[in-house]
Design a binder for these strands. Sequence first.
RNA 1: GCCGAGGUAGCCUAGCUGGUUGGGGCGCCUGACUCAUAAUCAGGAGGUCGGGGGUUCGAAUCCCCCCCUCGGCACCA
Length: 681
Amino acid sequence: MEVKLITCGLPYANGKAHIGHLRTYIPADVYVRYLRLMGKNVLFICGSDCHGTPIVINAEKEGISPRDLVNRYHEHFKKIFSAVGVEFDFFGRTDSDYHHEMTVEFVKRLIENGYVYSKEVELAYCPKCRRFLPDRYVEGICPYCGAVARGDECDQGCGRYLEPGEIKEPRCKICGSKAEFRKQKHFFFRLTAFKEFLLEYLEKLRGTENALNYAREWVKKELKDWCITRNLEWGVKFPGEDLVVYVWVDAPIGYISYTREACRVKGCDWEKIWIEGTNADNGIRWTDVTHFIGLDIVYHHCIFWPSMLKGAEFALPSAVVASGMVKVEGKTFSKSRGYVVWVEDDYLKEGFHPDYLRYYIVNYTSHQKDLNFSWKIFMEKVNNELIANLGNFIYRVLHFAWKNFGGNVWDVLDASGDFSVDEEVKKAVEKAKNEIVKAVSSWEFKVASDAFMELSGFGNNYFQSKKPWERVKTDKVECAKTIANCLQIVRALVILAYPVLPFSMEAVGKTMGIDVKNSKMDDALKFEKVNVLEKPKPPFKKVEEEKVEKMEKIMLERIRKAEEAEKAGAEKKPEIVAIDDFLRLDIRVGKILKAERIKKSKKLMRLEVDVGNEVRQIVAGIAENHKPEDLAGKLVVVLANLKPARLMGVESQGMLLAADVDGKAVLLTPEREVPPGSRVR
RNA sequence: GCCGAGGUAGCCUAGCUGGUUGGGGCGCCUGACUCAUAAUCAGGAGGUCGGGGGUUCGAAUCCCCCCCUCGGCACCA
């Protein structure tokens, strides 16, 4: 049978698992389990992303080798995934031999096909450390927005990806000394050659709209060739050079190398999946591969990765499913600000059941939308939905059957000779099943989980209206019929809810002699004899209010600490400068003569400022909270000897000084009228 | 400013190829019941369907303008 390959974005082996990770992995696992219930032959793979500079830096900080650091988090993720029931067929790592081999093969194919060329680039080099400073070893100024940036990304400013050599005023992050630019040969991937291909590919690629729109938008703009080598010891060696392959090149190749390894174990054919594919269509060779990823790595999976595959003549994935972002207590997820829920420390070690989190993540909202995690809502959903509806129905039925019939409802029915499942019960089960199949195929896991909850609601209703607790005293056969019907519903629920709640449903199934793991979706529709084999236990335990209060407290404390740390960091930063340094700045009072908004800009204002001996044109980012008419005639403080720059095509010959209050500019002005041009010192 | 995705009761949502009183879940209120983890069942309150125009016999649903949220881009010298 044809294999459906499902992958998840590789977790970076540099930190612990948090709830944001699970936002992608749990729905993927749910998807896989549903597919298997539907009889599909699925291969579900993932693994650690082990290379890259952050891992090297962190290992160095801890005084251990990158390998040791990676080992730690690789094991951590494996443990977490197994604890929350995310069961991969194979969980590999990119620092393994098989992956290095695969990557080298892959890169060689790109080279052979002419998609790689070398170019001299100027790179930051630290004379003191005597080495090139790749990526995040470099701190400097972003050439686009002027913010303090890392070597490969303007992480605090405009967020842009920076090509090696682009950064301004680089400094070595390790020793702090000034870095210099030196020439160095690097290798580039001809991404620009794939524009036409990408436009077509993205037309036909399936997946969630959030991913596809984002990628299409990106391709329509200008593509740049991509530097795919780095000066680093840790990583996959670039063939024939003293360089390493950029981590974002080797990481996705993990999908292939892991598939090959998984196939070695499982006996499938990796080449059929990744090379032959399923069907070709106008030069695009498709393969049945679905990537589950987070919204933050869409362009890697929709732009870089398909281009690489095309360039190396591999088959192309058919779907990219991106999960929405996670918020914590309504706030944007942020580890540094304390808005984070750690899977191990905050959840598992506190004794919360993995199925609860699976339900929450899947059922809170649509897969594409942002998911808000709140402990209060968590408790409400678990106690009022999962337990009050589903758990209660399952337990009341099993318990009733056990207490009144010793579990063998069918003994009574067999004796009576006539029994068939109620039509309305059949219909309800069928409806749930159909809805689930439909929802799963469009990655709408909330809709799928709502469907089995609705079935459970139907069950409660049915049970209630038939009043078996009264019937048991008057007409035992009638009562048994009701319970037998209810048992059919429970059986269906066990199967239909299993992908979302694998631990609990497996346990319930066991008390009824159902082997859920090997069941098929249609078994939910087979209405056959089922009994309760052992004394049933309530399938779920309530979440205690005190527990939730405790978690909220932990969260608040963490946020408070993060805020403190941020403040402390902000206060510590400024370095001491000599008076000479200050005197190099020509700061003067200026008078605004004219102010107007720069059209097409939200923030920029064009000003004409009298700075004493001349009138300067200055562009300032103050349009958001200042009106042009209020500015004319105002005295302001101007940095007059700043190197001129062009903003939105308008030259700026200086800079207005302002206090930064929550990102908004508050202009400085002298306490009394002074002549324009007065020096500030 | 440009491009995407959204804005439906306190929260999560269905509806969006226009058509009987805008559905559902959670919470809330009232009643019923007691097999069940104070679970369940019945009933109810609660909505200017972001705002304003327009098309139409008729719009949450189509068109135009505006506002707000989120993400991306352009930008805070």
